[in-house]
Design a protein around this nucleic acid. Structure first.
Length: 978
RNA sequence: GCGCGAGUGGCGGAACUGGCAGACGCACCAGGUUUAGGUCCUGGCGCCUUCGGGUGUGCGGGUUCGAGUCCCGCCUCGCGCACCA
């Protein structure tokens, strides 16, 4: 290795090597001193005295990142973006004297480790733990101020013991829609024992009114009633089965293309007995409480959309000519258009099709378009249902043209007695509403399209203001009801809202229907046929009744198995059935246990499914608070301290709303907007209802960070080439040219990862520049919420900033501290206080890019001022500390402070130095800047006006006099010529 | 199709309640230091210009003394949802 000249001239320059040395030293020191260990008020780590003495203000701040999965590929430079931001924010708040808790654990169950295990035979625990070691090292090297004691891992039995415990609490609870909550609202979870008690006492009537009482029922009958109320329940339901994955997946994990998010396998709807979570019971609260949290509107909208609440009515249509009293119930959001319902449509899966379709051939005169080419309704319907069942959801979506056949049945429109045909068509979905609709072609686009295709009547019942009518297109806007009256009720002349209300009231009075709320949200499919997940703490007795394990038997540990894979099938084989790996361990599955329920030792069969990956991440933020607690998932006082509600609600909450509490700042990617964030809110609310928590929401403030995009390059074939081997050169015309292996390639920007071959590791950045430079660069790139392109060359700017800061304190040649003890100029003092003022607001608002701009300006001014005065450089170093903690600690220490600056008080701006003596006033003529004046900041309006009007340029511009003068002292005068 | 967000120099991005557009950084240009390169320091840097000025925040209108910012209509890009009755 050659010695470069500057190394000898400036041996004390801030170089990558020096940064590396400084950074590692401070990381060791922070760890040894436990600098970032946040004291708890109670629980096993309770240090109330330490808390009181170190944080007299009593203020706390809980800052969290989304739970990372320890990937085998290690971190790329996109991952730390959020972690750096939360670290800067945390360090800033620590310097405000708050007890700040910031920690990161690992969401360590999951598919990649299992798939790797299947391929290699290596236990997924081994792979996972190895990855955790790598990731922990990478995170430590970043200099995050984490409480290392709280680095929990979901795969540890001591952790998943509580995941199982929470599952049992949910299983052992039901949702009482009538229960009054503390906030006055109705509906909350209650222990199942209270439901049993209500049945036993007769307070609650039994579902079957057969004269028997609760005690008369067999235990199996009792269990069946109880199980139908549990918030976690096993039920036969249409679920998403991915044969190629060997597992079922949740609705939320199915892509638009009808494939599994994991593995991209085709997903089929199949009726299987699976564990479900009754999240639908919380639909209203999950939607309503979004008003009380500080989240991006976009994410709130996504959750509301997913919950899909819509107000409407259910209406019953009698089936005409049917033997017995067949009925079709529909859901509609437009009960006001009932008089315009000219036909009905049911989904191909609708059970009524088994009974309402008449035998025989088509009635005489049946429109040929209605028959599907069949000789009779039964044949037509059977053929249509068969064809639909073969279509995947994708195929159904692809073909948006309306298809369907007449069922041969007629229904009676309850408002006017009209005999209307019933069709089966796949544009009606079984999974939404009742699976049947009343079709109003005049005011619904889809129904209009269907009516046009099949030649059905279109009757306008809402007037369109333009008078265009509804023959060519449905009119879906507001208008006055028309053609809508029978002997008892008339909507004519009413607006849509009033018409809905009057019609709903009439339907209810007549017993024909009722106002109702419908949701898109379905219950959450909670079981997976996988190995690497939490076992259910559930056993089944000989009757098949599920029993929860007593708490004393937790954790139920995951047994070792010979083969980690579920049985995999041909991805297209929808006749296959899931076979979980745990089912192969007979000695684990079949057990003799005494559950302590008075039944003594019995033979039981264990549940062989495992919980989905979401289970561990649904509540981890609670375990961070009290990870060593063996008696509770979290000590109630600890939870109340870190997450309890504030006296004042978040900005934007409705008038009078009370604060839900929750994590003070939660940062993560928007990809979890509906999945993790919705599931966690649901669990949190159950635990709140059952009295285990004081907070109603898990995440009081959520911030969604943007992505870092990195350049990726494609060759002539459109294939991605390794980005790190692409060479950049200036072309003949000055354009930038990129070549790989001598051949030109095309540049684009995209998500960092293996698929685009554009991986950039933080390890490379640590080696080339140091962690502080990486932190500064990532925070300076632009607004945190925004996605932005990575540019390794631009990192030079961050290096220069830190070198200049270093040089302001340390002599590069001698290593001596070179700050001066003289008083700074008044201008520099003003600059300092302006910077403090700006940076303070920027840090609080996560505006790190603009904070860096202000710090850069001040640093440059110090550089230009000659010697750096101590009274300026010390606050500058403190202000930089949250962003670049290592270099700041080192400079602080060289400036003569033996203690870490982690708890030093952040500089406070002196208002006296924020006011300026003179300011530049802009003189506009007709809104355009024509001149400038230096004026005293306190100048009066009149004085400023006279000064401005006396200016030669103003005189010259107003030969015909002046129409108006707008004076905004001291910054602006606008003269409007006549 | 519906909903949301965003369009500002060569690039990333600043701009509080309407009040000097382009902070800060990258790249680039010039000068200084240096044997040279690099580093470092200083200055310049929207576009056009006859050096007076003109013009300029996706496009077209509007409100206003004054619009990147507010209103109306378009265009483009991104994200989400998508036959949800």
């Amino acid at each position: 290795m050659t010695t470069t000249p500057q190394a000898t001239e400036t041996p004390h320059r801030y170089t990558a090597a020096l940064a590396d040395e400084i950074e590692r030293a401070w990381q060791d020191r922070w760890e040894e001193s436990g600098t970032f260990r946040a004291p708890n008020p109670a629980g096993p780590w309770g240090e109330p005295d330490v808390l009181a003495s170190r944080f007299p203000s009593g203020e706390k701040m809980l800052v969290l990142d989304m739970f990372p999965y320890p990937s085998g590929a290690g971190l790329h430079i996109g991952h730390p973006l959020g972690y750096i931001a939360t670290d800067v924010f945390s360090r800033y708040h620590r310097m405000l004297g708050k007890n700040v808790c910031h920690c990161i654990g690992f969401d360590a169950f999951g598919l990649p480790a299992e798939q790797y295990a299947v391929q290699t035979g290596q236990h997924p625990r081994k792979t996972t733990e190895d990855n955790i070691v790598i990731m922990t090292r990478q995170l430590r090297r970043l200099g995050l101020g984490l409480d290392d004691r709280r680095a929990i891992r979901t795969i540890d039995p001591a952790y998943y013991r509580w995941t199982q415990w929470i599952f049992l609490k949910i299983w052992d609870a039901w949702y009482d829609t009538d229960a009054v909550r503390a906030d006055g609202g109705r509906g909350k979870a209650r222990p199942i024992s209270e439901l049993v008690a209500a049945y036993a006492s007769g307070e609650r009537p039994l579902p079957a009114d057969d004269g028997r009482e609760w005690a008369d029922l067999s235990s199996l009958e009792q269990a069946q009633i109880i199980d139908s109320y549990r918030l976690a329940y096993a039920a036969e339901a249409p679920v998403n089965w991915a044969p190629g994955l060997g597992s079922v997946v949740a609705n939320e994990e199915v892509t638009n293309e009808g494939r599994s998010e994991r593995g991209n396998f085709p997903v089929f709807r199949k009726n299987l007995r699976q564990w479900m979570m009754r999240i639908t019971a919380y639909a209203d609260r999950l939607a309503d409480d979004l008003d009380r949290v500080d989240w991006p509107d976009k994410v709130k909208a996504m959750q509301r959309n997913w919950i899909g609440r819509s107000q409407g009515a259910r209406v019953t249509f009698p089936v005409a000519d049917a033997p017995g009293s067949e009925e079709l119930e529909v859901f509609t959001t437009r009960p006001d258009t009932l008089f315009g319902a000219t036909f009905m449509v049911v989904a191909p899966e609708h059970p009524a099709l088994d009974s309402i379709v008449p035998a025989g051939s088509w009635p005489a005169g049946t429109d040929a378009r209605w028959t599907g080419g069949a000789t009779g309704p039964a044949e037509a319907v059977a053929a249509y249902r068969r064809a639909s069942s073969r279509k995947s959801d994708v195929e159904r979506q692809e073909n948006k043209e309306k298809t369907g056949v007449f069922t041969g049945a007629y229904a009676t429109n309850p408002v006017n007695g009209a005999r209307i045909p019933v069709f089966v068509a796949d544009y009606v979905l079984m999974g939404y509403g009742t699976g049947a609709i009343m079709a109003v072609p005049s005011h619904d686009e889809r129904d209009h399209e269907f009516a046009t295709t099949f030649g059905l009547d279109i009757v306008q019942v809402v007037s369109d203001p333009d008078g265009v009518g509804v023959a060519d297109a449905a009119y879906t806007g507001d208008g006055l009801a028309m053609n809508s009256a029978n002997d008892e009720v008339s909507l004519n002349g009413l607006g849509v809202t009033e018409a809905k209300a009057r019609m709903t009231a009439w339907l209810e009075a007549k017993g024909l229907g009722r106002g109702t709320v419908n949701y898109k949200l379905r219950d959450w499919l909670f079981s997976r046929q996988r190995y690497w997940g939490e076992p259910f703490p559930i056993v089944f007795d000989a009757d098949g009744t599920a029993h929860g394990l007593p708490e004393s038997m937790l954790p139920l540990e995951l047994p070792d198995v010979p083969d980690y894979s579920p049985r995999l099938f041909d991805p297209e084989d929808d006749s296959s059935e899931p076979e979980p790996p745990l089912g192969r361990v007979r000695e684990w599955v079949e057990v003799d246990l005494d559950l302590g329920d008075g039944r003594g030792v019995q033979r039981y069969t264990r549940e062989t499914n495992t919980m989905p990956n979401w289970a561990g991440s649904c509540w981890y933020y609670l375990r961070y608070l009290d990870p060593a607690n063996g008696d509770a998932l979290v000590d109630p006082d600890v939870e109340a301290y870190w997450m309890g509600p504030y006296a004042t609600p978040v900005a934007g909450a409705p008038e009078g709303a009370h604060d839900p509490g929750g994590v003070d700042l939660y940062v993560g990617g928007v990809e979890h907007a509906v999945l993790h964030l919705l599931y966690a809110r649901f669990w949190h609310k159950v635990l709140f209802d059952l009295g285990h928590l004081s907070s109603e929401e898990p995440f009081r403030t959520y911030f969604s960070q943007g992505y870092i995009q990195a350049p990726a390059y494609t060759d002539a074939r459109g294939q991605y080439v390794e980005a790190s081997e692409v060479v950049e050169a200036a072309g003949a015309d000055g354009q930038r040219l990129f070549t790989y292996d001598g051949a030109p390639v095309r540049r684009e920007f995209g998500k960092i990862g293996k698929s685009l071959k554009n991986m950039i590791s933080p390890d490379d950045m640590y080696a080339a520049y140091g962690a502080d430079t990486l932190r500064l660069y990532e925070m300076g790139m632009g607004p945190l919420a925004q996605s932005k392109p990575w540019d390794t060359r631009a990192v030079a700017g961050s290096v220069r900033f830190l070198q200049r800061l270093w040089r302001n304190v340390v002599d590069e040649e001698t290593g001596a501290v070179r700050v001066v003890e003289t008083e700074p100029s008044a201008a520099l003092v003003r600059a300092l206080h302006r910077t403090i003022d700006a940076v303070t607001t920027d840090y609080a608002d996560l505006g790190f890019n603009t904070a860096i701009a202000r710090l850069t300006e001040l640093n440059n001014e110090v550089t230009k001022s000659g010697g750096a005065p101590r009274s300026v450089i010390e606050p500058l170093v403190l202000m930089c500390a949250p962003l670049v903690p290592h270099i700041a600690e080192e400079l602080w220490s060289r400036l003569g402070h033996p203690e870490s600056l982690a708890y030093e008080r952040f500089p406070v701006a002196d208002p006296a130095h924020l006011v300026e003596d003179t300011v530049t006033c802009v003189i506009q003529i007709q809104g355009k800047v024509r001149d400038r004046l230096d004026v005293p900041a306190a100048i009066t309006e009149d004085a400023l006006r006279s000064l401005a009007l006396a200016l030669p340029k103003v005189q010259a511009a107003t030969p015909n006099g002046i129409r108006a003068v707008i004076v905004r002292p001291p910054r602006l005068v606008n003269v409007v010529p006549a």
